[in-house]
Design a protein around this nucleic acid. Structure first.
Lengths: 89, 89
DNA sequence: TAAAAATACTCCATAGGTATTTTAT
DNA sequence: ATAAAATACCTATGGAGTATTTTTA
């Protein structure tokens, strides 16, 4: 599981639309679709309710979202901290 | 960045030894070495003090370790929760 | 029909393995 | 000589792209 894929998932939950989320992440729509499918495969659980269009997250998706938001936010803080440490050496 | 690689890093910090950490993760020593090198490359910072042998983490490594421990622990909890949700449906 | 997501394919990066080398004691 | 980590090399996986198809309101 890639941290980057978690950020794709967070974007999808925010945008409620595969193509818009992909655009927000600066990747193609199929790449985002595949990344979400990969997360579902890795976790052996459906994360998204799909019909003709995006129809929200499953309960498992909501559970993942909670964690993913924290991971992505903390990862960004980590990168900032590391850059600061490098900068001050 | 792979969540799995963070668990390798946590194992290295615990075992203080590349080969023992690799063994604990059930992977080969070169695979663990490469994973740590990949983390260092992804974060553009050295994480491990290397001499003839493992000589501890750099300050950046300590900062990563703090976060990585949380991510790995929370990931395991997530997997447990998801399994529980699937089981009860 | 039109919009949205999935699928088919291609390419390339990389995770992981085994075998070997380097390095410092 | 030995122990520890790095390096070389190979294979298989999978992430990402473009083009296209499927689906359903």
């Amino acid at each position: 599981m890639l941290v980057r894929h978690l950020s794709y998932f967070v974007a999808l939950a925010r945008e409620q639309h595969f193509a818009r989320a992909a655009n927000a992440c600066a990747i193609s729509q199929p790449t985002l679709s595949a990344a979400i499918a990969r997360l579902e495969s890795d976790l052996s659980t459906p994360l998204v309710r799909r019909g003709r269009r995006f129809e929200g997250l499953t309960p498992e998706g909501e559970r993942l979202l909670e964690w993913a938001r924290g991971v992505v936010a903390d990862y960004e803080r980590l990168c900032g901290d590391l850059q600061g440490m490098r900068g001050r050496v």
